[in-house]
């Protein structure tokens, strides 16, 4: 309050409108307040990410055999970088992930484009969502039964006259990978579809309408108008889905266990197998650290940019 202000009228105003005094906090507390609000969540995340990260780095420097830890320095790392199974797992993850993600994106874009102005969009959306709402372990069993144990796919293809007899899906490298891709595409195309439909519904209809009145065909409207407008959304959606695909585990665990000859082993399954099947914990930790480094690089580059463009 200014000292030279006439005191009587000011008092009068204060008496006329009695207000509870605003709670005063010291400036230090004010500045600290957002950090205090964030502290519990950050502490929790640090325990669950930073601690495991440091633990993995530490453990990766040892050969761990049950209870004995034997120092090996970078021994695990030099072994892993020469381990063909490690590189195969990395390659499989990239290959299966890339094919699967491409298929999902194309299918989701196509059905989203045809569905978003349809009068029955609410119905389509619920139907298309359903595969995503099954537990991933359940979906893995559905396709394990359909491909391998129940021979349904072979039988259906046979009835269509495409093949003869029974296919051993786990007997061939491309076919075994194909089963994983089918399961992933079936379950997760809905994820992209839901996002794309929302993006299409949210965009300005007038530009499209104008183009249509000008006689533009629907493919050209799609390519030249809808797709560019959806770009930021597509980037965010593909980034999120891409991250999840690289962690693929459940389908491998249930359907293929890495067969034939490791051709379907993903990075996650490699770490699991080294750690919890072969009890090579130091080795598994070294693989985790390498994967963590990859993750951080991708997060800092692709994801940061994707979420910035997505926010606008």
């Amino acid at each position: 309050m200014r000292t030279d202000a006439p005191s009587v009228p000011a008092k009068g105003v204060a008496q006329a409108i009695p207000k509870p005094a605003p709670r005063r906090r010291s400036p230090a507390l004010r500045r600290a307040f957002p950090y205090i609000l964030l502290a519990p969540a950050l502490a929790y995340l640090l325990v669950i990410t930073l601690y495991p990260g440091l633990f993995a780095i530490y453990q990766s420097l040892f050969v761990v055999k049950f209870l004995t830890w034997e120092w090996t320095g970078f021994g695990n790392y030099s072994a892993i970088l020469q381990d063909r199974e490690f590189w195969a797992a990395l390659g499989n993850t990239a290959l299966i992930g890339a094919i699967s993600l491409t298929l999902q994106t194309v299918i989701a874009l196509a059905i989203a484009y045809f569905a978003y102005r349809d009068p029955f969009i609410r119905g389509w959306r619920i139907v298309y969502l359903m595969p995503m709402l099954f537990m991933p372990s359940a979906v893995a069993f559905i396709w394990k039964l359909a491909f391998n144990d129940g021979r349904v796919i072979s039988d259906l293809l046979g009835r269509l006259g495409l093949i003869e007899g029974n296919i051993d899906w786990l007997g061939s490298i491309p076919l075994a990978r194909l089963t994983l891709i089918v399961a992933d595409v079936w379950q997760w195309t809905p994820f992209l579809f839901i996002i794309f439909v929302a993006a299409l519904q949210g965009q300005d209809q007038e530009i499209e309408e104008a183009a249509r009145l000008d006689g533009a065909s629907w493919p050209s409207i799609f390519w030249n108008i809808s797709l560019p407008m959806m770009r930021p959304v597509i980037v965010v959606a593909i980034t999120l889905r891409g991250i999840d695909i690289t962690t693929m585990f459940t389908n491998v665990f249930v359907m293929t266990q890495g067969t034939p000859g490791g051709a379907t082993e993903t990075m996650s399954y490699f770490i699991y197998r080294q750690g919890f099947r072969m009890f090579n914990f130091g080795y598994a930790s070294a693989a985790s650290v390498l994967m963590l480094i990859l993750t951080v690089i991708i997060a800092q580059t692709v994801v940061k940019r994707a979420f910035h463009s997505g926010k606008k």
């Binding site: 669950i48 990410t49 990260g53 770490i271 699991y272």
Partner: peptide, 26 residues
């Protein structure tokens, strides 16, 4: 603020398998 927000977001990208061994020991 930006960095903290992004750190929180980035924990979503951590593959479960990366932290599986340490979490198991924890």
């Amino acid at each position: 603020r930006e960095d903290i927000g992004f750190y929180i977001l980035s924990t979503r990208m951590m593959a479960p398998a990366i932290v599986a061994v340490p979490i198991f020991f924890l």
